[in-house]
Design a protein around this nucleic acid. Structure first.
Length: 666
DNA sequence: TCGTAAACTTTTTTT
DNA sequence: AAGTTTACGA
C-alpha cells in the first residue's frame, strides 16, 4: 500500500490527514470530504508503521461507526482488522465487560434502555409510597440523567421526596445488576479514577485516538476520551459546530473550546470546500446558518455549478403532502432515470413518518424507513428479550415482572405483591422470593398458585442450563414452545390470525439474528448479544439499493442524497414549538438542524409545508410555513415544480387508482 | 384472578 | 388517534 495524500486529497485535507502526531482540531463543514480525509488519515497512519490495534476511532452513532469501518476496510483491503471503530457507548460497554467488577457489580450485568428505566422508576415511586400521577416519568428520568452526568448539581430546593426517589432509583439499578446508557460512559470514568492501572492499560493500548462528530460529545464523553488521550496526546477531533444537533441530550459544542484549552499544542485545520451540494443549495445553506450568532466563522464554497433552484410547495394537509411527494418521486425517477435510492424524504419528528410511508407504499414505491418504532420495541420481541434477560441476569426484577405472568400463568397482582414484600424483607431478588414460595411449606399462597410458581421456577432453571450449554438460537425456540407463546398471541388477537403470523415471523427474525450472531462470534455469550442489542438497536440494514430513504433529520446526519424532500416544514414543527417554549435560544439548534437537512441534498431540494395539519391528539390546526424558509434568499427559490413537464397518461392513471384506493378505505 | 370497559396520556430529536 | 393503564364486576 502506498498512500499519496497530496494526490488524493485537497491541500487542507492532506494537511489534516498528515498531522498524525499530537493533538489536532479539524473543523469540517458539511460535505467537505471529512470521511474521505479520515479514511486516508488512518491509511497513512498504518503506512507509517502504527499498529492497527493502537487506533481507536470513536463516533456518535452506530451508522457513522459502521460507515467508517467499511471505508477503512475498503481502503486497506480488509487487512488491519484490529482497528477499533465504534461508538462511545459500545466502547464503554466493552470496558465494563472487562472491568466492572472493580465497582462492585457482578460481571453478568445487563443494559437497561429507556423503556426499562421507565418501568423501574415507576416501580420505585410506587414502592416508596408516592403517587405516580404527581410525576412525569420521562422528565424525571431526564432530570436524573442530568444529575448522574453532573450537568445539574443537585435536586432543586432540596426536594426530599425527589432525593429519596433518586437515591432509591440508583440503588435499585445496582441491586438489579443493571447499567443504563449514561453508565456506559460514567462507569468507565469511575473505573479509570479508581484504578489508574486500568487507565494505563487502556492508554497503552490506544495510542492514537480519533473522535468524529466531536460537536455532539457530552461533557462526560469529553472527560472520558481526554483521560485516555492525556498520556500520548495523539488525538484528533473532527467536528462542525454548525451541525451540533444533540444538545438536548448533553452534547456540548463548547467542547471545542475546552479542547483548545486542554490541548494547547493542537494544530487546527478547516475544511471549507464542499464537494456535495450544487451552488444554489450551498448558498441557501450558507445564508440560513449565518442567522445564528453563536458559531465559529466559516464559509463553505464549491466549484460546482449553480444547479437547479430550490422548490417550495404548499399542500392542503399532511395527506395531500404525502401523496404529492410520493407521486413526485415516481415521476422524477421515471423521467430522470434515477434509482429510488437517490431520493430521501426528511422530517422533523418520527410522528410524521407514518403518513409518508403509507403514501409511498400505496404508490408501490419501495421504501426504507429508519427510525420510528424499532424492531426491538415490538411487543413480542420485548417479551422474549425479557425472558432472555432474566435467564442471563436473574437479579433483573424489571424484566422478571414483565414476563412473570406473560402469558398468563395464574401469577397475578396479589401474588406478585406478596412476592415483593417477601423479597423486600429478605433483601433478595424477586426470583429468589419466587423460589422460596414455590418450595416452602408455609408459603402464603394457594396450592394452585404454588403449582404455577413451581412450574415457572423450573422452566427458568431449565433455560438457564440450556443457555450455559451455549445454544442461544435454539433456546429462543424452546422458550417460545415452553410458554406456548403462539397460543397466547391467538388469545390476544382472536380475530386476526394474520397479525399472529406476523408476530411469530418477527420472532423468527429474532431467532435468525441470534443464530447469525452466534456463528460470527462463537466465543461470546448470550448476555453479550443482549447488551449489544440494547445499544445497537436496529441492525443497520445496509443502505438498501433501490429504496427511497425516509427518516428524521437527525437520522440523516452524515448521509447525502441526490434529491431531497423536506416535508412538514412549518412553524411549530421546525423550529419546534416545544423547543422554543423551553428556551427561546433553542432557535439556533433548530436552525442548525434545518441546515443539516438542507445540506443533505446534492442536486435537488424540494421543501413542502401544509395549510393544515392534525396534531397527535387528532385535532386540526392551521399552520404557517417555517420561518426558516424566509431565510433562504428569494432568487434561489422557484415556485415551479421540479422537472415540471407533462404527466404521462400512465402516471395519471396510477394517481387515479391510488386515489380510488384511498377513498375506498374511508 | 381475569376480562372488559372506561380513562388517560402522549417530550421532537437517540445511545 | 392510538396506545396503554386503571377500575370494576364476575
Amino acid at each position: 500500500m502506498s498512500i499519496d495524500l497530496v494526490k488524493e486529497l485537497n491541500s487542507e485535507q492532506a494537511k489534516a490527514a498528515a498531522n498524525i502526531n499530537g493533538p489536532s482540531l479539524i473543523i469540517a463543514g458539511a460535505g467537505s470530504g471529512k470521511t474521505r480525509m479520515l479514511t486516508y488519515r488512518i491509511a497513512y497512519m498504518l503506512e507509517q508503521g502504527i499498529q492497527d490495534r493502537e487506533i481507536l476511532a470513536l463516533t456518535f452513532t452506530n451508522k457513522a461507526a459502521k460507515e467508517m469501518k467499511e471505508r477503512i476496510s475498503e481502503l486497506t483491503k480488509g487487512n488491519y482488522k484490529h482497528i477499533t471503530a465504534t461508538t462511545f457507548h459500545s466502547f464503554g460497554l466493552g470496558l465494563l465487560k472487562q472491568y466492572i467488577q472493580y465497582l462492585g457489580y457482578k460481571n453478568n450485568f445487563t443494559v437497561y434502555d429507556t423503556n426499562d428505566n421507565t418501568s423501574l422508576l415507576r416501580n420505585v415511586i410506587v414502592t416508596l409510597g408516592y403517587d405516580l400521577s404527581n410525576y412525569n416519568i420521562s422528565s424525571l428520568l431526564a432530570l436524573f440523567s442530568d444529575i448522574k452526568c453532573e450537568r445539574h448539581k443537585e435536586i432543586q430546593n432540596k426536594d426530599s421526596a425527589l432525593e429519596e426517589i433518586y437515591n432509591e432509583f440508583i440503588a435499585t439499578q445496582k441491586a438489579y445488576n443493571v447499567v443504563d446508557f449514561d453508565d456506559l460512559i460514567l462507569l468507565p470514568i469511575k473505573i479509570f479514577e479508581k484504578r489508574p492501572d486500568v487507565l494505563n492499560i487502556v492508554q497503552e493500548r490506544y495510542k492514537y485516538i480519533l473522535v468524529d462528530e466531536f460537536q455532539d460529545t457530552s461533557l462526560l464523553q469529553y472527560k472520558f476520551i481526554t483521560l485516555i488521550a492525556k498520556k500520548y496526546q495523539n488525538i484528533a477531533v473532527v467536528g462542525d459546530d454548525d451541525q451540533s444537533i444533540y444538545s438536548w441530550r448533553g452534547a456540548n459544542y463548547q467542547n471545542i473550546v475546552n479542547f483548545e484549552h486542554d490541548f494547547p499544542t493542537l494544530k487546527e485545520f478547516k475544511l471549507e470546500r464542499n464537494y456535495r451540494c450544487s451552488g444554489n443549495i450551498l448558498e441557501a445553506a450558507n445564508t440560513i446558518i449565518t442567522h445564528n450568532e453563536k458559531r465559529k466563522e466559516k464559509k463553505l464554497w464549491t466549484e460546482d455549478s449553480k444547479g437547479s433552484q430550490i422548490y417550495v410547495t404548499s399542500n392542503e394537509d399532511e395527506e395531500e403532502e404525502a401523496y404529492y411527494i410520493a407521486q413526485h418521486i415516481k415521476d422524477r425517477s421515471r423521467k430522470e432515470g434515477l434509482a429510488y435510492s437517490d431520493f430521501a424524504v426528511l422530517v422533523r419528528t418520527n410522528g410524521l413518518l407514518s403518513k409518508l410511508e403509507t403514501a409511498l407504499m400505496e404508490n408501490s414505491i419501495p421504501t426504507q424507513v429508519s427510525g420510528g418504532q424499532s424492531f426491538f420495541d415490538r411487543k413480542e420481541i420485548r417479551d422474549l428479550l425479557c425472558y432472555l434477560k432474566v435467564i442471563v441476569n436473574i437479579d433483573d426484577d424489571v424484566s422478571l415482572l414483565r414476563i412473570i405472568n406473560t402469558p398468563r400463568r395464574g401469577i397475578g397482582r396479589v401474588t406478585i405483591e406478596k412476592l415483593r414484600q417477601h423479597a423486600d424483607k429478605k433483601k433478595t431478588s424477586l426470583f429468589d422470593a419466587l423460589s422460596d414460595f414455590a418450595y416452602a411449606a408455609d408459603a402464603p399462597v394457594s396450592g394452585k398458585t404454588k403449582e404455577a410458581l413451581k412450574n415457572f421456577v423450573q422452566m427458568v432453571i431449565g433455560w438457564q442450563n440450556l443457555a450455559e450449554n451455549n445454544q442461544k438460537a435454539s433456546l429462543l425456540s424452546t422458550i417460545i414452545d415452553d410458554i406456548s407463546y403462539r397460543e397466547k398471541l391467538h388469545e390476544d388477537y382472536p380475530d386476526s390470525p394474520k397479525s399472529v403470523d406476523y408476530k411469530m415471523q418477527s420472532l423468527e427474525f429474532l431467532r435468525q439474528r441470534i443464530s447469525r450472531y452466534e456463528k460470527s462470534n462463537p466465543d461470546t455469550s448470550l448476555r453479550d448479544y443482549l447488551n449489544l442489542v440494547m445499544i445497537l438497536g436496529e441492525e443497520n440494514s445496509d443502505v438498501e439499493k433501490g429504496k427511497v430513504n425516509l427518516m428524521t433529520m437527525h437520522a440523516a446526519k452524515g448521509l447525502e442524497f441526490n434529491t431531497v424532500y423536506l416535508a412538514g416544514i412549518e412553524d411549530n414543527i421546525i423550529p419546534s414549538s416545544r423547543a422554543l417554549e423551553e428556551n427561546p435560544a433553542n432557535i439556533e439548534e433548530e436552525r442548525r438542524l434545518f441546515y443539516v437537512a438542507v445540506t443533505r441534498a446534492k442536486k435537488e431540494l424540494t421543501i413542502t409545508y401544509c395549510e393544515n395539519r392534525k396534531d397527535r391528539m387528532g385535532e386540526n390546526h392551521l399552520c404557517l410555513p417555517s420561518r426558516f424558509i424566509e431565510e433562504i434568499p428569494n432568487q434561489l427559490i422557484s415556485n415551479k415544480v421540479a422537472g415540471e413537464e407533462e404527466t404521462s397518461t400512465e402516471d395519471k392513471l396510477a394517481a387515479l387508482s391510488a386515489m380510488l384506493e384511498k377513498l375506498r378505505k374511508k
